[in-house]
């Protein structure tokens, strides 16, 4: 993945120079270790600002809406699937977007790495699968494969599903015997244990809505929690209101979520909100044979009626 950045810059530079796109949306280096920040590049001189590494965990599909003119965007497998979802849902037109695909080998789990050290991490570098992490007291060399985010270890679409340019060689897709072990674990619990699990999960939620705002699916002009005339959900820290937000946010993603992990990446309280959406992903797959964002010609299963839809739930 380290080598693809030269290719990304080369493509971006060419696109801007030829006037094929007005801007390129990508990642730039952050001001702190293990951080990159979404950035927009308007001119050829600035393409060196672009970087791509294992810390680019946000989803850039979230930045392509409402742009004037044609934009190029750097897309991992999951980003490309969300771009497909955007096109299907009429958020962006295919010919308005130039996709620079980046085959991905997974993004790192920053919180897991931080937890290894008692103090703050002051330096982070990577070379292939080797991560070098330094805190003020010690230094560790880690194997990236052991520190991937949960969604990346379970990812089966590392290569972009749609692209105009490719910034690296396609990577081998993972084959998983069971793509939903996390959902199975919760399904095996009884009702009270499940409830307890989710109560503890969202216990420290501060309702900053970073999970929602980092999500490329959440583009409603006014979110249901922000409706004020009339108001739908209480705004305080009442646990039922907090859970209502999480439950409905997840349900709005049903059949649309690509498990890109941006929600968890953004959460300041380290809450694995994917526990909600993963169940919907599993159900979509089992009930409709559906994985979101793979086909530009098909609408998500809850958007369309099909005579073959499962209907055992209805009396």
């Amino acid at each position: 993945m380290n080598t693809c950045i030269n290719k990304i810059r080369e493509i971006a530079s060419k696109l801007l120079e030829n006037g094929e796109v007005e801007k390129v949306i990508g990642f730039a280096n952050g001001t702190i270790p293990m951080a990159t920040s979404p950035v927009v590049i308007n001119s050829k001189q600035d393409v060196d600002k672009l970087v791509f590494n294992s810390t680019c965990g946000l989803n850039l599909a979230n930045y392509v809406r409402n742009q004037k003119g044609k934009v190029a965007v750097i897309a991992k497998g999951c980003d490309s699937r969300n771009i497909v979802t955007h096109i299907v849902e009429n958020q962006v037109k295919r010919d308005q977007i130039h996709i620079i695909g980046v085959p991905c080998t997974g993004m790192i789990n920053k919180k897991k790495i931080e937890a290894l050290f008692g103090d703050d991490i002051i330096e982070f570098t990577e070379d292939g699968d080797t991560l070098n992490v330094k805190s003020s007291t010690r230094e560790e060399t880690l194997n990236k494969k052991e520190y991937l985010r949960d969604n990346c270890t379970l990812c089966m679409h590392r290569n972009p599903v749609v692209y105009d340019d490719l910034a690296g060689d396609l990577v081998q897709e993972q084959t998983l015997e069971n793509p939903y072990p996390d959902v199975d674990r919760i399904e095996a619990m009884d009702a009270d244990a499940k409830w307890q699990h989710f109560q503890e999960l969202t216990q420290n939620c501060i309702r900053c809505y970073a999970c929602r705002n980092a999500c490329p699916l959440c583009y409603c002009p006014t979110c249901f929690v922000d409706e004020s005339g009339p108001q739908w959900v209480g705004k305080g820290q009442n646990k039922t209101d907090v859970d209502t937000f999480h439950f409905l946010r997840a349900f709005h993603c049903a059949g649309r979520c690509t498990d890109c992990g941006a929600c968890v990446e953004a959460c300041p309280m380290d809450i694995n909100v994917r526990d909600f959406t993963r169940k919907l992903n599993k159900d979509s797959f089992e009930m409709f044979g559906w994985e979101a964002g793979l086909d530009i010609t098909k609408r998500p299963p809850l958007d369309v009626y099909s005579p073959g839809d499962p209907n055992a739930f209805i009396k």
Binding site: P38, V39, C208, G234
Partner: peptide, 25 residues
């Protein structure tokens, strides 16, 4: 502002952000 996702993280973690909203329930 380009990269900002407009979440409330910065304001909620901030020790000096004092703004509040009043709600009747």
């Amino acid at each position: 502002a380009f990269s900002c996702i407009n979440c409330g993280t910065c304001t909620y973690v901030c020790p000096t952000c004092w703004c509040f909203d009043i709600q009747d329930e």
